[in-house]
Design a protein around this nucleic acid. Structure first.
Lengths: 132, 132
DNA sequence: CTAGAACTTGACGCCAACGTCAAAGGCAAA
DNA sequence: TTTGCCTTTGACGTTGGCGTCAAGTTCTAG
C-alpha cells in the first residue's frame, strides 16, 4: 500500500507518516519510481506509534522503544527510562484526575445552582479562594 | 511580597508569573517604583493556575474559568466548554492509562525474562507485531 | 498516450508556554 | 551613600509535531 492509503487507514496525515519515517519510527520500501510502499502491518505500527505519542513520549524515546518491542528485549538503560516514563504517566494521570475533579466541581456548581450553599462543593471547587 | 518570593513559594519562574499576568490570569499591585507586589493569597492562585495548565487547559480557557471560579457562577457557554474539557481530560486519562499498560508490559518483559514464553504478556505488549 | 490524482523532497510556518539575554532602574542593609 | 541583589520592559529563541505551500515526478484509469 502507498502512503495515502496508509494515512487513511491509520487516521493520520501523510505528512505525519513522512515525519515518523524521518524520526526513524517507521520504515518503507520504495517503488522503482521512488514512492513509498508499506506492508499491511504498517497500519498497526502507526497506531502503536500514535499511542506512544499520546502517552506523552517523544519521538526520541519512541525510537528507542520500538526496537525493544520488536526484539522483545529491554536493555538496563532502557528499563530505567521506561520506569521513569511510567512514573511520569502515572503522575500525569493523577494530575489530570485532580484537575478533572475541579472541573466536575465547577460543573456541579453550574448544574445545581443551589450548591452555592454547599460549602463542601465550593471547597472542592476553589479550596483557597477568598471567602465572600 | 515581590515576584521573586512568590516564584519561590509557588515553585514557578518569575518569567512564568509575568506571563500569567500578561495572559490575564494573575493580577498585581505595584510599588511606587513600579515593582510588582502580591498578596499571600497569590501563592494559592498560582497553584490553581498551574493545576489547570496541568489539566491541559490553555491560557485562554483558564482566563475564562478563573472569573467564574471567583464569582462562583458559570455561564451556559462556559458550562458547555467545561463539559467539553472534562470529556477531553477523561479521554486523555484513558489514553494515558492504555499507554501506561503498554509500558508496564515492557517493564515486565525486562524484569521477568521468562515472560518471553508468556504469550499473554507479549500480546499485551505488542498485540499485533509479526509473530517470530 | 494522456490527463490528473497521488507522490516526491525541501523549506518555511505555527503555536504555546515559557527561557534567556540585555540594558536600565528600584530597594534595603551597612 | 554605596553595594549588590532584585526587578522592570522588550524582544528574540526554543521545542515538538506536524501543516502548508511549491515545484517537480510517478502512477493509473480510460
Amino acid at each position: 500500500m502507498r502512503i495515502g492509503e496508509l494515512a487513511d487507514r491509520a487516521c493520520v496525515s501523510t505528512r505525519a507518516l513522512r515525519y515518523y519515517e524521518e524520526q526513524g519510527l517507521l520504515r518503507s520500501s520504495r517503488t522503482a519510481g521512488g514512492q513509498r510502499v508499506y506492508p499491511h502491518s504498517a497500519e498497526d505500527r502507526v497506531r502503536l506509534i500514535r499511542e506512544l505519542y499520546t502517552a506523552g513520549l517523544t519521538s526520541r524515546v519512541i525510537a528507542e522503544l520500538l526496537p525493544a518491542i520488536d526484539a522483545r528485549h529491554v536493555s538496563p538503560e532502557l528499563l530505567a527510562r521506561l520506569l521513569d516514563e511510567r512514573a511520569r504517566t502515572k503522575a500525569k494521570v493523577a494530575e489530570l484526575q485532580a484537575a478533572g475533579q475541579r472541573l466536575d466541581a465547577l460543573i456541579a456548581l453550574a448544574t445545581h445552582p443551589d450548591s452555592d450553599s454547599c460549602p463542601a462543593t465550593l471547597d472542592r471547587a476553589a479550596a483557597k479562594s477568598p471567602a465572600p
